[in-house]
Amino acid sequence: MEVPDIWSKPRRRLIGPFCVQMVEPIDLYWKCGLANPHTSHCLGSGQIMISCMGEPAGGGKGGFVLLDGETFEVVGNWEHPGEAAPFGYDFWYQPRHNVMISTEWGAPKALIHGFNPAHVKEGHYGSSLHVWDWTTHRKLQTLDLGEDGAIPLEIRFLHDPNATEGFVGCALRGCVFRFYRTLKGDWAAEKVISVPSKKVEGWMLPEMPGLITDILISLDDRFLYFSNWLHGDIRQYDITDRRNPRLVGQVFLGGSIISDGPVKVLEDPEKHGQTHPRIIKGKRVSGGPQMLQLSLDGRRLYVTTSLFSGWDKQFYPDMMREGSVMMQIDVDSDQGGLSVNENFLVDFGKEPDGPALAHELRYPGGDCTSDIWI
């Protein structure tokens, strides 16, 4: 009797007028020894590359899966055996310079149910960037960013394919590091932005970091944007001087320090203090600004509020009950400046099977975080 091979090919599911390809977790386990896929990028070869955050048992393992770009079958690992990073998360490559750099979050078994500060001291969260040879797939360097670089999440090279530098947002201490190739040909990193923590009461710790969870760079490489998921603000920096970013725009959208919430700000180095709840089209925004996406002309910045369900439940239980939202920020792409579009809101709490937690945003045809120029 012939046993059908139900795992050999990705399944296809019809959703409305669309056909969705599904890669089963067991394929990642068996063929690559990886789990918890995160970032995907298309390669010039026609393949699709996906970073993974761990191994099937829940420990940290920063490896990369290759998919066939037409069939979506799992081809295998991109990295060589034994060269996976301790943790995985995001990555960005620059083929013109034969380099890829990847980041770290933490061990899935530690972060899945929420954030425990003790896990940082126990070594379950990362603080390094990993530099890879794009041609040979060998790991060349590990850049330890130290305490200020704990939990480096989203990484962005400049869009200019000739540039050998970019930025990475480090969540735990609210810092942005610039990474760059040195005159010797290796890679280094330096801190260029620091969002000070606020002294608070009524929260899990005596100090609350901004928690930078997403960053992006405008297509002309002039502005850097990032979200502080806990403080509740989005910031716009002029990065014309790459080593000295200049704050030119800021807007608050919810967060954990709203005036009628349980957390009281005792000391704020930036003098913002408590912020007001954000209400758009009659809907109070639960949660804080998280994933970002910028239109190609740089004038419309979209933001959603859900980070990760385990962390959403811990920090923003109201969002679990009411669903997340998507908002639009109008951008002054000439002088700098941000303002909320009060006439735009997508309420995922009203989804038919909701409330839903919306996370990533993408533009059809490409956007400021999916296009890599070669």
Rank of each mutant, 00 (worst) to 15 (best):
G337E: 02
E104Y: 00
C368T: 09
Q21N: 13
D297I: 09
R300T: 14
L216M: 14
L28E: 04
L183F: 14
G69H: 01
T39V: 14
A118C: 12
T213V: 07
G185N: 10
R156I: 05
I26F: 10
K139P: 02
R278C: 15
K283G: 08
Y125L: 14
G82M: 10
A85R: 06
L219S: 15
S40Q: 15
S218W: 02
V251Q: 01
L247T: 10
S324G: 13
A171R: 01
L224W: 00
Y125K: 12
N244R: 11
Y316Q: 07
G323F: 04
V340A: 11
W187V: 04
G337P: 00
W30A: 15
M49Q: 05
S8P: 09
L211W: 08
V3A: 10
A107H: 05
F252M: 06
D148G: 09
S286T: 13
G149D: 04
L34C: 06
P269H: 08
G354T: 07
M53A: 09
K198D: 03
R156Y: 06
H159T: 01
R299L: 14
H119P: 05
A84P: 10
G288K: 03
T71Y: 04
E2K: 13
D160F: 11
L153W: 00
V168Q: 02
K281L: 14
T136L: 10
V3S: 09
M327Y: 10
K281T: 11
I372Q: 04
R235V: 08
L172N: 09
F223Q: 02
A118I: 12
P81W: 06
D297A: 10
H231E: 08
V65S: 02
F179W: 02
V74N: 01
H97L: 00
P4G: 05
K121Q: 14
H137W: 11
F348N: 06
E104D: 04
P95L: 03
V303C: 11
R362D: 11
P317G: 04
L14N: 12
V200N: 01
G54H: 04
G16V: 03
V192W: 01
F91P: 02
T304P: 00
P81D: 09
P269G: 07
W105Y: 15
F308H: 07
H137D: 11
V303Q: 05
G282C: 04
K9S: 11
G69S: 00
S218H: 03
V131Y: 03
I257E: 01
Q21G: 07
T275Y: 07
Q94Y: 12
W203T: 03
W373V: 11
E351D: 12
H130D: 06
L216V: 11
V285W: 11
A189G: 04
F348Q: 05
F252G: 01
I279M: 09
S295H: 05
E270W: 13
V251P: 03
R242C: 11
K281P: 07
S227A: 06
I112H: 12
G310C: 04
G114D: 06
F87A: 00
V99R: 04
T164L: 14
L219V: 15
S40G: 15
D221N: 08
P206G: 07
E207G: 05
Y89W: 15
A150I: 15
E73L: 01
D347V: 01
D241C: 12
D233M: 08
M100Q: 04
P245M: 07
H359A: 13
